[in-house]
Design a protein around this nucleic acid. Sequence first.
RNA 1: GGCGACGUAGCCAAGCGGUCUAAGGCGGGGGAUUGCAAAUCCCUUAUUCCCGGGUUCAAAUCCCGGCGUCGCCUCCA
Length: 479
Amino acid sequence: MKIKNTYGGSYQDFIPLRKDEVGIYVCGLTVYDRIHIGHLRSFIPFDIIVRYMKFRGFKVTFVRNFTDIDDKIISRAREEGISPYDVASKYINLFREDIAHFELLTPDFEPKVTDHIADIIELIKKIINNGYAYVVDGDVYFHVPSFKDYGKLSGISTENMLAGARVEPGENKKNPLDFALWKAKKYEDEPSWKSPWGEGRPGWHIECSAMSMKYLGEEFDIHGGGQDLIFPHHENEIAQSRAATGKGFAKYWLHTGHLTLKGEKMSKSLGNVIDVPQLLKKFHPEVIKFSLAKYHYRSPVEFSDDNMKKDEKALINFYYTLEFESEKAKITEDQIEKMRDDSRVKELLNSFCSFMDDDFNSPSAFSLVFSAFEEVRKSNSKDELIRFLSFLKRIYEAIGLFGKVPLISQKSFIEEEVIRRCKEYGISYDEVCKLVEKREELRRQKKFQEADEIRKKLLNVGIYLQDTIFGAKKIPYSE
RNA sequence: GGCGACGUAGCCAAGCGGUCUAAGGCGGGGGAUUGCAAAUCCCUUAUUCCCGGGUUCAAAUCCCGGCGUCGCCUCCA
């Protein structure tokens, strides 16, 4: 398995520190607002990566944190007139609600900063004792010039960093690049904890060092997050952690490409965010997952409804045809299960894995799924179709995608999408079914004009009626 | 200004020195099927990979220069 490591920038063979075990820490959220599609751009690829590593037989420990104390949370609390604690728990709950639609794996640990203050204080003590940090008026700063490898992850030289560095008023840094490990309490309404340096709270960065090392050890395999975290967040984490332990910290650094909207990065500061409820009004979660995962995880993604619709179309065609052909061939779950160890299935799976092993090349892996399906249809063979379904079932087990057909998961993408459209357009599913029946009757009476009227009507709610040997099929349709 | 990434068909997007007369998806064109049908099926749609040099027996893939786009350098997935 090969991985492109941001640290050093090269493709490397993935060799876990402990045989067959993988520790992975993904930077989660600062919980001061609802998540948006940009977060999904990171969480979805990491979900696929974690699932895939499990599928490949690694015993994976997956950690994703909540940063629940921070400047932004405090200012949000002031805005909303509630406590910072309430802000954090509110957005953690909303996060869980939003993310639930996507069937992502729940991390083995979801640590919160406020539950780990003692660990953070211990870590800061070590850093100070090792001579990498200093105390000024209750603040503790990490002294960047004392850490010689600073800048190695982001590839920025400290001289160039100095050019853009700022010192906020009231900060007493020895060097503009120094960053806070601990912040002294300044305002009454600010949550704080007792520490050897006085009342205060952790700075940003230190929490991830403390929590990742607590759950995964002082050295672990993978640390990931969005590209924007490379500097300063991850750079600082490396400095702190190594300063504290003298050990290497994370071995592989993985970063997901950003999502842009009309050529601009989507971010809260630009105000061009699309949140999950907005997204789900228009698209099925599987479409969102597929659409975000069909780009390589490191690539930037230009998000637009148009791009999304293309991917939606691809999935509709794929799932509809698959369901229809399976029905026609009268395939059973049992038959699919029996093909599990078939040599052709293994062959397909090997090809799939060889793409995924190459730095998680999901676009190529997905293209294999489509081309394999095309071959099956060309062969016109029931056995080939069973093999393909068996292959697909394994893919679903591996990465949680492509499994929304009844024979594989008891779920039907097509049916779910039809129902979703009913909701979107405010028509009940029952009514749609009644209209379909009515049209069948009209067709039997050869009243084609009236029958076509019904088809037209349903087309307005995004449902196309396709007449087949099994009667009229409802297919989601968008122009 | 510094650092990084990228520029492949009408659009999206793989490709990491030969198997590339370039995967896959969407779209387009022609035909089959159909009461009709945008679904399905069959055929078709880049001799070419931003531009100009170079390295090599061999380059979309490596190097140099140019043009363009995006990201980071401040909070950010």
